[in-house]
Structures are given as C-alpha cells and as structure tokens.
Design a protein around this nucleic acid. Structure first.
Lengths: 158, 158
DNA sequence: ATAGTTCCGGATAGGAAATGTCCGAGTATT
DNA sequence: AATACTCGGACATTTCCTATCCGGAACTAT
C-alpha cells in the first residue's frame, strides 16, 4: 500500500478541528513531511470530492462533508486508486493444459478467494469513519488535543 | 501484492493431484511462465516448509502436508513475506505539535484502523485451504480435471 | 486593477522493490 | 565412480513508488 495514505488520513483527522481552509504547506509543516508530495495527495482527495479546495489568499483545503460521512475506505481509494491489490493473470488459459476460453466465464477459484479476502478488508475500512479516528485521538491524548492542533493551524505561518 | 503469489497458489493446487515430486521446470511449462522466476517462488514455499524439495534425478517439489492443512494465508506469507501492507511512520511524533514519545505506548488510531482491516483480510485467507481451492476447480471444470493435469505432470517432459 | 497567495497539472530525477536470469552445490540414478 | 538432473542462492533488468520542480490558472485582499 502507498505510504501517502497515512499522510492523507492524518490530514483528514486534523481538518476536523477547523472550519476555515488550511493551506497544504501548513499541513506539511505540521506533520514535518515533504510539502510538494503532500500537495499531490491532497489533490487526489480533492479530485475524489472528499475535500474542497479554495484558491487565492486565505485559501486551502477543508473537508466537504461531516467527518461521520467520510469513511477510511474512501480516503484509501482516493490516494491509492481503486485498483485491486491482486490481479489475476488468467494463467489457467495458458500452457499445454490450458482451459478453453469459453469455459472461463467466471473468475478462477484463486481469483475468487483473493476477491473475498480483499472485500473483507474493504468492508472493515468502510465501517470506520474519520469521526471515529478523531474520537480515538481524543480518547488517547485527552479531550481538546485536536482543538490545540486546530488553533495552531489557524495561526499564520511562523 | 506480488504477482508470484498467483503462480505459487496454482502450483499448490495442481500438486494436490500427484504424490511424486514434480520439477520446477515442469510446473513452469504447465503454466507457461518463466521457469527461473517460478523456481524462486517455489524456493520460498520450501523455506516456509509448505513443500518438500528432493534433489537429483527424478527430484522436484511435493506438498509436505495434506491440502486441508495448508491455508492460503500461509502461501501468501511465504511468497510475499509476512510484512504488513501498511507501515506506520509515526508522524504523530514529528513536527511542532508532536506528541511526546512517552505518550506513544500504543499504536496511533490510524495504525489501529489499518491493522484491523489487515487482520480481517488475513482471517479470510486463513479460512481457505488448498483443498478448498482444488475442490472449487473440480466443481468449475468437472470432476477429474485435476487428475488430467496430474497425469500430464507425471509424464516425462516433451 | 494590481499584487500576492494558493491550488492544479504535467514533466522530471532518484531509489526501492519486484521481475527475470544465470551459474554453482548437491543428490539419485546408471 | 561417473553422469545427468535437480535445487539453491547470487546477479542484472525493469517497473513502480517517492519526491521534486516549474509554469499556469484562479481567487482574495489591498
């Protein structure tokens, strides 16, 4: 899995603590990561419609919906792309004992097994929302932790 | 996910139809894939103890246990390695708002969410055995399909 | 209107990981 | 013992991810 997913999820969580747009450079400074590369992940989130971007002075990124309505799966798909982890090469149709193409109407047994496992993972990611993550952070580090970060995000850059 | 997993699983399934060792080159010919690269995957299976290798003339690979006792998860771990798909960079400990290291006794909320999803996928793979896959193949292409492949594997190379 | 700030997309290196290939070590057969 | 055949690990090649930079468009505040 792409490493940018972690950055994107952290950004979504901290964005729950502010309502005004936050520039990508400021989010990168908060997490101490590459500003240009983080910008690319945020663009992916924008294309997927998860965050809204406003240009110009005092612009930046903000969540489009309530955190309860954004699932972790949506963020993962937006950044990593919706391509499945396992891709069937259809090697059953190759070699001297190849099964004829007309008998391959359904995916092979191995492909089905992988699809089942992948569906289980995606279902688990679908049940977790950004609001759940933000709630867990408050539980871990004390209530108001996200508010502190929100206050820092609102202040103009150092 | 590595593409070699597909090859390894197909090899395990067809190996259920023979009891004598089958050379890696013959398995590669059956699937029409790179012989040397497939050998690498089979070596990984051997290191994991899923298949037993015998050298010398009339040598090759054979399953060590009954197909019911080999899970798909074991094959995936053997080929792709047991490394998790998601690796937490601990970016919560970086930047101006970093959380102190002494407060990071447990994994962060995002890491926990990913671990849950990954566990669901692994659990799904654990419940499927090589015997299940072989059974599905017989259901798909008719009983005796694997026996035909087994007979071809036993014949000396073309 | 002008200037300054911000997002957006593509083009471009660098590096890690997967893919693919080769030759030596070892063993059963002859 | 000689031989032929096999596995095993070390060696190139290619692909993809990571990371960067630049030009352009759009928006806000002055």
């Amino acid at each position: 899995m792409s490493g940018g997913v972690e950055w994107a999820l952290h950004c979504c969580v901290v964005l729950t603590s502010v309502r005004e747009p936050v520039p990508a450079a400021r989010l990168a400074e908060l997490h101490d990561v590459s500003p240009t590369y983080l910008a690319k992940q945020l663009q992916a989130l924008s294309r997927a419609g998860l965050v809204h971007s406003t240009q110009g002075k005092s612009g930046g990124y903000a969540l489009t919906r309530s955190p309860e309505l954004i699932t972790v799966l949506e963020v993962v798909d937006a950044v990593d792309g919706p391509s499945a982890a396992f891709v069937c090469t259809e090697i059953r149709q190759r070699g001297p004992m190849a099964t004829p193409a007309e008998a391959c109407t359904t995916p092979c047994a191995i492909s089905r097994a992988m699809a089942t496992a992948e569906a289980a993972r995606r279902e688990a990611l679908r049940t977790i929302t950004i609001a759940d993550l933000a709630n867990d952070v408050e539980s871990d580090y004390g209530a108001g932790a996200l508010n502190g970060i929100g206050a820092w995000l609102r202040t103009t850059g150092a």
